[in-house]
Design a protein around this nucleic acid. Structure first.
Lengths: 331, 331
DNA sequence: TTGATTTTTGTAATCGATTACATTTTCGGC
DNA sequence: GCCGAAAATGTAATCGATTACAAAAATCAA
C-alpha cells in the first residue's frame, strides 16, 4: 500500500490523520493509492498506539424503554458525526452491572461515558468519579457531580402545568407522583408545589397519589381518586404512562375526561397522541437531549474547554395542549 | 505485574486466556498478582494480535422503534453472556448508511453482524455476502441468504388469526396490509389468504386495505372501511399500530369494537394492553428473538458448526385473545 | 548560487498483548 | 537414579498503526 504510493508508512499515516502536514502532491498520491487498494487502517493498532478507542460507553437504565431509544438516536447522530461509535451498557433497571460497566471505562476500552441513568456507576476497581474519564450526564441529572449535564426544565414545566390548569379555572388539582427516590420526580413535584403557590392555591392541601411511573400505578391512583371527597377537578401526572392508565380507568368508571376531570401528563410519548382523548402533555426533546449530550462529550474527549454556560443545559419542554384538559366544571 | 508473580508475560497471558494450560500453583500466583494489581489486559493489543474484537455490529432499521429496543435487550443478554459487546448501526429507515456499516465489518472492526433489517448491507468496498464474516438475520428474514435466521411464524399466526375470527362466526374478514415490499407483510398476507381458504371463505373476495405499519394508515383504512358495503365484520391488521389507529377511528365514528367489528392486531406492543378495548393480538417473543440470534452468532463466530435444525428458527407467536374480538353480530 | 530556515518525508521505536518455537521442569517406569 | 515423553514455562517475533527524531528537500534572503 505504502509502496504503491511510493512513500513510507509514516506518510500514509499522516495522510490519514493529519493531511495538512503533507505536500498536496504527496497527499494526492497516497489518497489515490488508498482508493485503489481499498485500504482501511486497522482500528486496533491505531487504538493501541494512539490510546484512543473512538468509542463511547452509553449507560442506559433500560434499553427496552422507548424513551431511551429515541435519545439514543440523537446520541448516534452526535457521535457518528465526529467519527465516534458507541457501546451500550444496559443496566436493566438494576445496579448489578454497574461495576462491570465502570471497569470497561477504567480499562480504557472507551474514551468517554454518557450516563442516562442519573448515577455514576459504582463498584469498579477504581472510582470513576476520581478518574479523569470524560463523562456527561443526560436526561437524569446527577446531583453534585462535576460533569457536564443536559436535562429538561422539569421544574419549570411542572409549574406551567399547574398554571395551565389554574387558567382553566381548576382549583382542586391533584398530583400523581413517580418513585420518591427519582430525581425527575422530585423536580416535577417541586415544580408542582411552586406552581400551586404561584396560582394562589395551597400545595399543602393538594392530593398526592403515589405512583412509580407505570401504567398500573396510574390505574391504582384512579381507583383511589374515585374515592376522594371532595374530588379534585384536575390531575397532573409525573409521566404519560401513569396519566394514560389514569384516564383509561376514569373512562371505564364512567367519568368523562376532560369534562369532569382534566389530566396533564409528562414526556410526550408517542401513544399520548393515540389515546382517547389525546393527552395534554409536555414533549421532551428526546433526540435533542441525546444529541447535545453527545456533542458535549465529544468536546470533553477532545480535551476542549467547555464553556461554563454550556456545561449544564436545561432544555425547554413545550406544553402540548390537547384533548385531556378543559375548563373546570362549574361548581 | 508479571514480575510480581515471578513469571513471564506469556504465562500471564495464558493464565487469562487458557488457564487449563497452567499448573494450579502457577495459576494461583498469577491470579493473586492480577487481583492485587487490578490488572486488566489491554483490549486493543489483544485484538491486534489475536485478530478478534469481541464486538458485534447490530444493524437496526430504526433505533427509535420500541420493537427493536426490546429485541436489543435479548441481544445484549445473549452476547454479554459470552463476553461479547455490541455496536449499534442505525440505518434510520434509509439505506444511505449501508456501505458505511458494511465497511465496519469488512475492515475487521467487529467479529460478526446481527441483521435486524431484513437485508444484507450493500455497497461496501467488497461484498459482505462473499466475505466470510459471520452474520445472523433476526426478525426480518433475508430470503435466499445462506446465513442462520431467526424469525417468528408469521404465516402460521396469520392463519390462526383468521381461524380465530371464523370460529367466532365472522365470514366477511378484511385485511389491513403493511408495505408490499416488506417480507413480514408478505408472509402475513399469505397466511391470511391461506387461513381464509382453510375456513372455507374466499380470500379473493376479501377486502384488502393498503397500509404502511403506521398509526395514520390505520386511521386511513378505517375511513375507507366505513364506506365499504357490505361492511366486513372483522379485520386483521398486519401490525398493532395500524390496528390501534383503526380501532380509535371506529370508536370516534360511533362503531362499537368488538360488538360491531372485531379487530386482531400483530406484534403485541405494550400499548395493545392500554387501549380501550384491549387489543387481541399476537405477542412476538422479542427478547427471545434477540437472544436466539445472539446465541447463533456467537456459535458462528467461534467457528462451531451450526446444527442445520437450528439454522433457521421459526418461533411461535401466541395469540392473546382480548377485548377487541367477539362473536360476529347476527346478520 | 549559497547557506540558513522551514517544511516534508523517512527510519525505527513503541503501544501491550498473543503465540510459535525453544527450553526447562515434571513425572512415570524401570 | 536415570531416561524419555509430556507438560509447563520462557524467549522473542509479531500484529499494524503512531510518532519522536533524523534526514532530506524545498524555500527564501542575500
Amino acid at each position: 500500500m505504502a509502496q504503491l504510493a511510493g512513500v513510507s508508512t509514516a506518510t500514509v499515516s499522516r495522510a490519514l490523520t493529519a493531511p495538512q502536514k503533507l505536500r498536496p502532491a504527496t497527499l494526492a498520491r497516497v489518497t489515490e493509492a488508498v482508493r485503489r487498494t481499498g485500504y482501511t487502517p486497522n482500528l486496533a493498532a491505531r487504538t493501541l498506539r494512539a490510546r484512543r478507542t473512538m468509542l463511547v460507553l452509553v449507560v442506559v437504565p433500560d434499553i427496552a424503554n422507548p424513551f431511551f431509544s429515541d435519545v439514543l438516536r440523537g446520541v448516534d447522530e452526535g457521535l457518528s458525526q465526529h467519527g465516534y461509535g458507541f457501546l451500550i451498557g444496559n443496566l436493566a433497571r438494576s445496579r448489578a452491572k454497574e461495576p462491570q460497566l465502570a471497569n470497561i471505562a477504567l480499562a480504557g476500552q472507551v474514551d468517554g461515558m454518557l450516563l442516562l441513568n442519573g448515577r455514576i456507576p459504582q463498584g469498579g476497581r477504581r472510582s470513576l468519579t476520581a478518574s479523569d474519564i470524560p463523562m456527561v450526564a443526560v436526561c437524569e441529572a446527577i446531583e453534585g457531580a462535576r460533569i457536564p449535564q443536559v436535562e429538561v426544565q422539569n421544574r419549570e414545566a411542572a409549574r406551567q402545568a399547574v398554571a395551565h390548569l389554574a387558567r382553566l379555572g381548576h382549583r382542586r388539582i391533584a398530583y400523581l407522583a413517580g418513585p420518591p427516590d427519582n430525581f425527575v420526580e422530585r423536580e416535577r413535584r417541586g415544580g408542582f408545589c411552586e406552581g400551586m403557590t404561584a396560582a394562589g392555591l395551597s400545595a399543602r392541601s393538594a392530593r398526592f397519589y403515589p405512583g412509580d411511573f407505570t401504567f398500573a400505578s396510574g390505574v391504582a391512583a384512579a381507583t383511589a381518586f374515585l374515592q376522594t371527597r371532595p374530588r379534585p377537578s384536575a390531575l397532573f401526572a409525573a409521566n404519560d404512562e401513569m396519566a394514560i392508565g389514569f384516564v383509561k380507568t376514569m373512562r371505564s368508571a364512567g367519568i368523562v375526561v376532560p369534562d369532569q376531570v382534566s389530566v396533564v401528563g409528562f414526556d410526550g410519548i408517542e401513544f399520548a397522541d393515540f389515546v382517547e382523548p389525546t393527552l395534554t402533555t409536555f414533549r421532551q426533546p428526546r433526540r435533542e437531549l441525546g444529541y447535545r449530550g453527545a456533542t458535549l462529550l465529544v468536546a470533553a474527549m477532545r480535551g476542549e474547554a467547555i464553556d461554563p454556560a454550556q456545561a449544564h443545559q436545561y432544555l425547554p419542554v413545550p406544553l402540548l395542549e390537547r384533548g385531556s384538559t378543559a375548563l373546570a366544571p362549574a361548581v
